[in-house]
Nucleic acid binder design. Structure first.
Length: 211
DNA sequence: CTCCCGATAT
DNA sequence: ATATCAGGAG
């Protein structure tokens, strides 16, 4: 889509979602990383429920590596893929201690080298915890930006690359959050609420649902 | 491509 | 009953 049309869509999104903030609860880069790692295929609400108590017990990687895999599983059991996430979180924290003095690296390569951290999670940590311009493409951003015709992409990486060309750099982080909020509030995966969508006049996939 | 594999909405 | 939720690894 042309930059002009994209900026029109972004203006409407900005007016509709003025906050443009993460709905995950965290207070530092470590908590941001952990919350994001836990959030795969799981609602923010569920993650926040888990981290509300978890972050009282783990203040950094040094606290995580004290736990056994089973203990960690117990603490995050109510989120999806808890076994995989426990294994990854434990290994990631060991790597943080071994290679980064227990700090969270602020570059994509080092973040993605951590077990359980892919491009999407790395981009979230970069933008949300460090203020580094990055455009994380999750399931919402992928779905919504394609539906709106902001991009024509077959996968998240293509989506990210196309959005970075048409969205101004200083709005990457905000656009990321606007698209997520729109995906959660209106442009649902299963039954998008096109009738009440403030973007339906410019949406190529606008449909009047039967019911 | 498959597997991971709990909670929730429809 | 089934699709979906701030995905990543093998």
């Amino acid at each position: 889509m042309k930059k002009q049309a994209v900026s029109e869509a972004l203006e409407i999104l900005e007016a509709t979602y003025p906050s443009a903030e993460s709905e995950l609860d965290f207070t530092n880069s470590f908590e941001c990383l952990v919350a994001t790692m836990l959030s795969a295929q799981c609602t923010d609400q569920r993650v926040n429920l888990i981290t509300a108590t978890l972050f009282k017990e783990i203040k950094g990687p040094e606290d995580v590596v004290q736990l056994s895999e089973e203990e960690l599983q117990q603490k995050i059991r109510s989120c999806n893929y808890y076994k995989t996430k426990s294994k990854h979180l434990l290994a990631a924290c060991q790597q943080l201690l071994a290679q980064h003095n227990g700090f969270i690296p602020n570059n994509r390569e080092a973040l993605m080298a951590l077990p359980g951290v892919g491009r999407k999670t790395a981009n979230v940590v970069l933008s949300n915890a460090f203020g580094v311009p990055a455009l994380a493409v999750d399931t919402h951003v992928f779905r919504v930006s394609n539906r709106l015709g902001l991009v024509r992409a077959g996968d998240p990486l293509e989506t990210e690359q196309q959005l970075m060309k048409t969205v101004p750099r200083d709005k990457w982080s905000a656009a990321h959050h606007w698209l997520i909020l729109h995906g959660r509030r209106v442009c649902h995966a299963r039954k998008p609420n096109c009738i009440s969508c403030p973007l339906n006049h410019l949406c190529p996939t606008f449909t009047v649902s039967k019911q």
